[in-house]
């Protein structure tokens, strides 16, 4: 996470430091000190800004440890006198436990990621590196479909899933999520930025197209693949609309649906429980992101997404 040194050396918006003179040691020490001051004089305001950005999450955690009615206490009390950890046990193991929803979300996300990575890398590679008649037209059609408002397809998919018996099953979320246009587009952009020469050389050596893909290009694509994995995971984990329409039985609910179930039977939102559930729902995705964060940023940089 603390990639300060590597990241800093990677960029060069620090013109002053790149002059690199060989002056006396005193001047160098002075410059170093000036640099440090400069670093912190930018760093501190940015950190304050970041904390403001993250304030809603602090509030979320604080509220998750309070009884419902204190959510709106004036003035806001950041650290509750008696933190209600039982909000968490209630959310996890109580009547409306979100564990099943949690598991459903994991199940959907894992399958979606696996499917998406498979189909998107293959297709993205083909659009970038293989020539075949109709490629341009198909790709244009792909880009056009990405403009279709998601809500437009809800009705026909609803009918369609019902006919196929997929309605109210997790497959209604998994299957469409395995073939996204955006994933293909991202992978294509990445492969386009890779040199053609590898393939040509391998072809002359008699390698088959599948071998070229699997042995030559795929191994180099790991950071882009992890970026796509993260994005797909995020899309899947946070999807609200699809489960709202395609799932109806509580045992199929994914997390976003589960979170809404803490509107209690009396119609009032149970603030403490809802926030505890929200915090729990965020943790896995935060972990995934923090673990792969560096790779993710690098992949975004390499992928010619610009």
């Amino acid at each position: 996470m603390t990639e300060t040194s590597t990241a800093a050396s990677g960029t060069a918006t620090r013109p002053s430091s790149s002059g690199g003179g060989t002056g006396p040691a005193a001047r160098q020490a002075q410059r170093r000190r000036r640099d440090r001051i400069r670093r912190w004089s930018w760093g501190i305001p940015m950190w304050i800004l970041a904390l403001v950005f993250l304030l809603p999450f602090a509030w979320m955690i604080s509220t998750s440890l309070k009884p419902d009615l204190e959510a709106f206490a004036i003035p806001m009390q950041w650290i509750p006198d008696e933190p209600r950890w039982e909000n968490y046990t209630e959310v996890l193991f109580g009547e409306n436990s979100i564990l099943l929803a949690f598991w459903n979300s994991v199940f959907v996300a894992v399958l979606r990621v696996a499917g998406e990575l498979t189909t998107a890398t293959l297709a993205g590679y083909a659009f970038a590196k293989l020539r075949f008649p109709g490629r341009g037209k198909v790709f244009i059609a792909y880009l056009a479909t990405s403009l279709i408002p998601a809500q437009l397809l809800l009705v026909p998919r609803f009918v369609y899933f019902q006919e196929l018996g997929l309605y109210d099953t997790l497959w209604a979320l998994i299957l469409p999520g395995m073939f996204t246009v955006l994933g293909t587009f991202l992978m294509r952009q990445y492969f386009v930025s890779q040199p053609d020469e590898f393939a040509e050389a391998a072809r002359l050596d008699g390698a088959s197209e599948f071998q070229i893909f699997f042995r030559v290009y795929l191994p180099n694509a790991t950071s882009m693949i992890s970026a796509l994995a993260i994005l797909t995971f995020v899309w899947s984990w946070n999807d609200y609309e699809t489960p709202l329409v395609f799932l109806s039985s509580p045992e199929t609910f994914t997390l976003p649906m589960g979170l809404t179930s803490f509107t209690d039977e009396n119609g009032a939102m149970a603030a403490g429980l809802s926030m505890a559930a929200a915090v729990i729902s965020i943790i896995p995705i935060l972990l995934v992101f923090l673990i792969f964060q560096r790779r993710f940023v690098r992949a975004m940089t390499e992928s010619a997404l610009k």
């Binding site: 099943l100 598991w103 459903n104 199940f107 499917g115 189909t119 196929l164 018996g165 997929l166 109210d168 099953t169 997790l170 497959w171 299957l175 395995m178 073939f179 039985s249 045992e251 199929t252």
Partner: peptide, 23 residues
């Protein structure tokens, strides 16, 4: 755990037909 709600073999075969064996 939600296996009960997952599609039956027949239904799933239908879905497979729809995606032409890609799943």
């Amino acid at each position: 755990p939600a296996g009960r709600r997952l599609p039956s073999r027949r239904q799933f075969a239908g879905a497979l037909g729809a995606v032409a064996g890609t799943a």
